[in-house]
Computed example of a mutant assay.
Amino acid sequence: MSRLYAISALALIAALIGGIGAYILWGNLNGRDDPFAQCRATRVAGGAGDIGGPFELVSETGETVTEAEVITEPVLIYFGYTFCPDICPLDVSRNAIATEILEERGQMITPVFITVDPARDDVARVAEFTDNMHPRMIGLTGSEDQVAAASRAYRTYYNRHDAEGDEFYLVDHSTSSYLVLPEHGFVEFFRRDTSPEEMADRIACFIDAAS
């Protein structure tokens, strides 16, 4: 009986070793299939392919545009609103600084701002906001449905406080910035605590890996 237990134990150990080996091999192969594996600092439930996709919005020049017309080079997308008293200006300014750092290194990206408050953020308001942040920043607004569809595509969250009779209402919203490459789609997101320098370094890694 003890011999039978020993044989069973050996078989179990062999199976575990084999399973671990297969898991490691699968992980290595999976990493090789991902050209950006060495650049990623975040993970997305369901994979990067679950974020991003088609959208149709109105640019700061008043033209209706799609994602194909906006994402012609690496873009850094942020969802916010121009009446935001503190968070949005800091985040968007950080993105603009990272854009400048990359430009000084010879790598170009386009910062993009998508409002989650189209009721107040019309074309003129968005244009004024983005022009103050960065000369190449693209500002996007649209109808309530258009903005909601873009937000769903990037899995962002926003919720307006009761706006009735209050022109200074606030909007709760997610605060990540999204790096999207023309040929690859969404590849990475950046949290609020990421510095401009760190953001620029990580974006540069993705740009280099894509070239």
Rank of each mutant, 00 (worst) to 15 (best):
E188I: 00
D50L: 13
H134R: 11
Y78M: 04
V70A: 03
A209G: 03
E56K: 13
R120L: 09
I138W: 06
I101S: 04
L179K: 00
H134G: 05
E56A: 14
E60P: 01
G52T: 03
P118D: 10
T66A: 11
G185N: 05
V92S: 09
P196R: 07
E69L: 10
H184C: 02
Q146K: 08
I7W: 09
M137G: 09
E69A: 13
L4P: 00
T82K: 04
S59M: 12
G165A: 08
A149L: 03
H161P: 00
V65H: 07
L25V: 13
Y178A: 00
A153D: 03
D201N: 13
G53K: 04
G53A: 11
V116T: 09
S151T: 12
S151F: 05
R152C: 01
V147C: 07
V180F: 06
P135E: 14
P89Q: 10
Y178E: 01
E167G: 09
E104Y: 03
A37Y: 12
I24P: 01
I97Q: 09
L181Q: 09
P182D: 07
P54W: 02
A14C: 08
S143C: 09
P85I: 15
A37C: 01
A41E: 12
D131C: 07
N132G: 13
L90P: 00
F190G: 01
I138T: 10
A210T: 06
Y23D: 07
P74V: 02
E63C: 05
R120V: 09
R155V: 01
T66Q: 11
M1Y: 13
L10C: 11
A210L: 04
F189M: 09
A68K: 15
R32Y: 05
F206L: 01
L16K: 03
D33F: 07
G27V: 04
T141L: 11
D208G: 02
R105L: 11
S143A: 09
